[in-house]
């Protein structure tokens, strides 16, 4: 895709006289390519956000919530720490995949951790409610991930499928 602009200039009419009917035809054929290149550079229209950004944010949010539960509920600490550890790995892998396609240097600062409110909330509820809240968050994450799987590119389908499966497995530990 990065090759397009080189052809774009020379065929689209910068060299007058060289543009006969055939030249116009060629320019017309190359236009979609030039448009695609512009979209890639992000300079014209905003791209649809990478769907993995939301999955990574949910994973970070689950890490914060699980750490809060681990601190507030000794009975749940082992399971909550396991949730935090696994979801941290999910957040890292998903963010790496986001950054691979959209290097962070060209975009703005990474989104902040979504939930600074989760740990205090966890301290105020009972153990059973905290367990339910964590399980619900994991069910949401699993659903988010598995809903994306059918339409993602192949490599991402594997990664996101494993994230969904990991969330379901974590829920089993909490049950």
């Amino acid at each position: 895709m990065t090759r397009a602009p080189r052809f774009d200039r020379s065929t689209a009419g910068d060299r007058p006289g060289a543009v006969g009917r055939r030249g116009v035809l060629r320019a017309g054929m190359l236009l979609p390519l030039a448009g695609a290149a512009a979209a890639c550079s992000g300079s014209t229209e905003p791209e649809a956000p990478d769907p993995l950004i939301a999955l990574a944010a949910q994973a970070r949010s689950d890490v914060a919530a699980a750490n809060g539960v681990a601190a507030a509920h000794p009975d749940l600490a082992d399971a909550a720490r396991l949730v935090a550890g696994v979801r941290q790995q999910h957040a890292t892998a998903l963010q790496q995949e986001v950054d691979r396609l959209h290097p962070p240097s060209t975009s703005a600062t990474p989104p902040p951790a979504a939930t600074s409110t989760a740990p205090p909330a966890a301290a105020q509820v009972g153990t059973s409610a905290a367990r339910t809240a964590l399980a619900t968050a994991l069910a949401t994450a699993e659903q988010q991930a598995s809903n994306l799987v059918p339409t993602l590119p192949r490599y991402r389908a594997g990664l996101v499928g494993s994230v969904a499966a990991g969330c379901a497995a974590l829920r089993e530990v909490l049950s």
Partner: peptide, 25 residues
């Protein structure tokens, strides 16, 4: 993949394997 990952949890627990969950089944 998901169903398999869930079943593996209880068998790991029964086999005495820790952790019971792998991050990327």
């Amino acid at each position: 993949l998901t169903a398999s990952a869930v079943r593996a949890v209880s068998w790991r627990q029964r086999a005495g394997q820790s952790p019971a969950v792998v991050a990327f089944p």
